[in-house]
Design a protein around this nucleic acid. Structure first.
Lengths: 229, 229, 229, 229
DNA sequence: GATGAATGAGATTTCATTCAT
DNA sequence: TATGAATGAAATCTCATTCAT
C-alpha cells in the first residue's frame, strides 16, 4: 500500500523507451568501457552538478578519450538518462522486499515503505537534485518526472480505494488526489531533509509521516503499531 | 494558522541582505530604468527559462543597451534575485487578508490559506520552477529556498502547538515535523499541478488538502465547514 | 656637468606643447576641480597602474562625477600627460640647487647630481614605471621619452666636451655617445634599484656610479673627493 | 667576462618553471599546431604590439580556429611567455661563441660581447620593448625581468672580481655594483638606439661602450685593441 | 574500437565617452 | 559647471561535437 516507493510500478517508464541509444557494445571490452563511462558520469555529475560538468571530465574520469564517449552515447543528455535510470532502480527496488508480506497491517506497510523511501533517497540525493533540476528546464525530463510521480500515485490511489471499500479509510477523500498529496508529502520532506540538508533522524521522519498518513486516511490503529521497528 | 502561505512571516529573509547590488539609482530616471530591467527579466525568464535567457535579451526587452544592464546588476544571478524577491512578495502577501478574522474556525483558516497559496503559486509558477531549479545547483539559492520553507514551517508549527494545547489537535505529533510535512504537502501538490501540469481544478485541490490537514491533525470539524467557499 | 638630472634643461619639451588641452579653468572653483582631478589621477595611477585604472575611479577619488572629467580633459591620455609633467618637474628641479656653485670640482658636481637623481627617482618611481611602460606602446610617449633623454644627453655631452678641451677627460671618447651611455647607466641602475626593487643603499649607488663616471672619463681625482658627503 | 650578454648564464630562469601550460601536445600534429601558434604570436605581437593584439588574430595567423588556441594556452599572457622564452634564447646564445677563446684579451672579450649583444638586441627589439613594457605592469614579468638582469650581473661581477684579484682592474670598485651599473649601461644604450630609434652605427656603439668599460674598470690596454674588428 | 586535436558559434563583460538635465 | 545615466563596440573564452589517424 501507500507511499511513493511502495512497489516497483511496472508502469514506470524507462527513458530507454524514448531515445535510441547509439550502440550496444558488441564486445566485452566495449561493455566495460561503456560501464566505466556511466560510473564516471555519476561521479562527475555528483561532484560538479550536471550543468557544470564537462564531457571531457567524464571521459577522463573513465580513463578514456573524448572521442570514445561518442562511441556509446550521442550526448550528455543521453548518458544522464543512463545514470538516472540506474538511480531509479535503486529508489524503486528496496520497497518490494517489505511488501511481499501480504498479511502485514496497513500501518506496518506504510511504515516500512516510508523508511525504505527515505533510505534510498538519502543514497541517491545528489542525483535526485539533478533530476529535479533538469525537470525544471528540459521538457523531456519534466515529462519523465511527471510520469514517475503518476505511477506511484496511481498505485497508491488503488490502495487507498481498497481501504475505503473495506471501510477502513475516510470515504470522503478522493483516492487519487489524496494519493497525490500524501505521496508528495513524503517526497517533499525527503527533499527538505536530504537535499536542503535540514537534518532530522530518519526514525523521527518515519514516525511522523506514518502517523500523518494514518491520521489523514482515518485509519484505525493501535499506538503500538507506530512504535519504532 | 497552518499552511505554508498563511501569514507573511516577518522573518522571511530577503536576498537583498545577501548581495551588494552594483548601484542604487540616484535619480528617478535611474529608478525607472532599473525597474524596467527587472520587469523585462521576468518576461524573458518566463519566456525562455533562466538558463536559456541572454542578458542582451533582457536589455533589449527593457529597451536599453547591454551596458545599461551592468549599471544596475553585476550578473544574471543578481537580477534573478530581484525578480524572485518580487515573486515572493506576491506569494506571501495574499494570505494575510483572510487571516485577520480572529474568530475564524481553524478549518476555515486552513482552507483560505490553501486557496490563497494555490492561487499565487499559479500566478508565479514559471518563477517557482526557476527558483526550484536554481536551488538545485546554486548554494545561495538553495540556502534561500531552505530559509523560506523554514519560516513557514516555524509559524505553522506554532499554530499546531497552539491547537494541541487547546486540546484540538493530535497531541502525539511533533508540531515542528508535522508542520514541515504538511506544509511540504501543499507545496508539492501545487508543484505537481502547475509546474508538471497535471491539471486539477483548484476547488478540488483546496477540498482535498484541507480535509487531509484536518484529518492529519485530528481536528474535529463539521462536514459543512469543508464545503466549497 | 654630467648626469642626466644635472640641470633643468630649458629644452626639455613639454607635453603641453603637443596637445590642445580642453579648457583652462575660468573660475577658482574650476581650478580647484581640475587640480583635484590631477592629484586623484596620480593616486589612482600609482595604485592601479595606468592601463588598469578607470576614469570613473579618478573622478570618484577626486570627489566629482564622471561627466566632470570631460570638462577639463579630453581623454585618459591627456590627464596622464598632466601627471607626468608634474613628476618631471620634480625629477628635474632638485639638481639645479647643487650645481649653481660654479667653482665646484667636476667630481663633486657629478656626485651631487647622481644623488639628486636617485632621490627624485625614488620619489617618483611609480610614475617612472608608467612612463616607461607607455613609451613601449604609444608613439607619442615614446617620442617624449626620447626627447627627455636627448636633452640630458646633449647637456652632458657639452660638459664632457668642455672637460676634454681643458685636457681633463679622455679625448678619444665621442662626447655625445659617451654622454648617452653614461646618462643611461644612471637611469638604468635607478630603474633596477627602485622599479625592480633590488635594494641598495643610496650612498653605495652614489659612490659606485660616481667612481665609474670618473674612471670612464679618465678624470683625475683625489680619493677624498669620493668620500661620502 | 664582462657585459650582460657575455655567456649563457645557466641560471637564467625559464618561465616554463612558473606556469602550468594547458596541455603538452601528445602527437606530432599537435606539436606542429602549437609551434605555429607561437610563431604566429610573435608576428602579431611585433606587428600590433602586445596590448593591441587579439587572440583571434594569432589563431588566424596560425591558420587555426580560436578554440585551438585554448588547447595549448590559457591566455595571451601565457603565449607571450613562450615567445619571450624563444627570444631570450636568441639573446643569450650568440655570446658563447666568441668567448670560448680562453686566451683572448679582456678587451677583446668585452668588445665581442658588446657587439653580440647589440646584434641580438636589434634582432629582437620589438619583443624587448614588449617585455620591458610588461615588466612595468605585471609582477610575473617584472620578476622575470629582474632575474634575467641578476644572472648577467652575477656573472659579470665574478669576472670583474677576477680582474681585480689579478691586479688588472680598479680595486676600489664594488664588483657587484659595478657589474650592475655597467651591464645596465649596455642594456640601456641598446634600448635607446633600437627601441627609441636614435640611430647610431653599431661600430660606434661597440667602440664607445668598450672604451667606457675599459676606462671604468681602469684596464690597461693598447689603442690598437680598440680598433674596429 | 580508441584517440585526441580541431572546430566555431555565441554569450558575457568592460569602460571611455556622450549627452540630457 | 556639475551630474550620472546611457551607450555599444569589441574581445575573451567555453565545450559539445566531429573527424582524421
Amino acid at each position: 500500500m501507500a507511499v511513493e516507493s511502495e512497489v516497483v510500478p511496472e508502469s514506470v517508464p524507462s527513458l530507454a523507451d524514448l531515445d535510441g541509444s547509439r550502440r550496444t557494445p558488441a564486445t566485452a571490452r566495449g561493455a566495460r568501457t561503456r560501464a566505466a563511462l556511466v560510473a564516471a558520469a555519476r561521479v562527475v555529475f555528483e561532484r560538479d552538478g550536471y550543468l557544470d560538468s564537462r564531457l571531457s571530465d567524464i571521459s577522463a574520469e573513465a580513463g578514456s578519450s573524448t572521442g570514445t564517449f561518442y562511441t556509446y552515447f550521442t550526448s550528455k543528455d543521453e548518458i544522464l538518462q543512463a545514470v538516472i535510470e540506474a538511480a531509479q532502480q535503486d529508489m524503486l527496488h528496496p520497497g518490494t522486499l517489505h511488501l511481499e508480506a501480504a498479511d502485514a497491517s496497513p500501518i506496518a506497510v506504510i511504515q516500512a515503505s516510508n523508511r525504505a523511501y527515505f533510505e534510498s533517497y538519502q543514497r541517491n540525493v545528489k542525483m535526485m537534485i539533478i533530476f529535479e533540476q533538469l525537470a525544471g528546464s528540459d521538457p523531456k525530463f519534466r515529462k519523465l518526472r511527471a510520469l514517475r510521480g503518476q505511477a506511484f500515485t496511481r498505485r497508491n490511489a488503488r490502495a487507498i480505494a481498497d481501504l475505503q471499500s473495506r471501510g477502513l479509510a475516510d470515504a470522503d477523500l478522493d483516492p487519487f488526489l489524496a494519493a497525490r498529496a500524501l505521496s508528495g508529502m513524503i517526497g517533499r520532506i525527503a527533499y527538505t531533509t536530504y537535499a536542503l540538508e535540514e537534518h532530522v533522524p530518519i526514525e523521527e521522519l518515519v514516525a511522523v509521516t506514518t502517523r500523518l498518513w494514518a491520521n489523514a486516511l482515518r485509519l484505525q490503529f493501535d499506538e503500538s503499531e507506530l512504535e519504532v521497528r
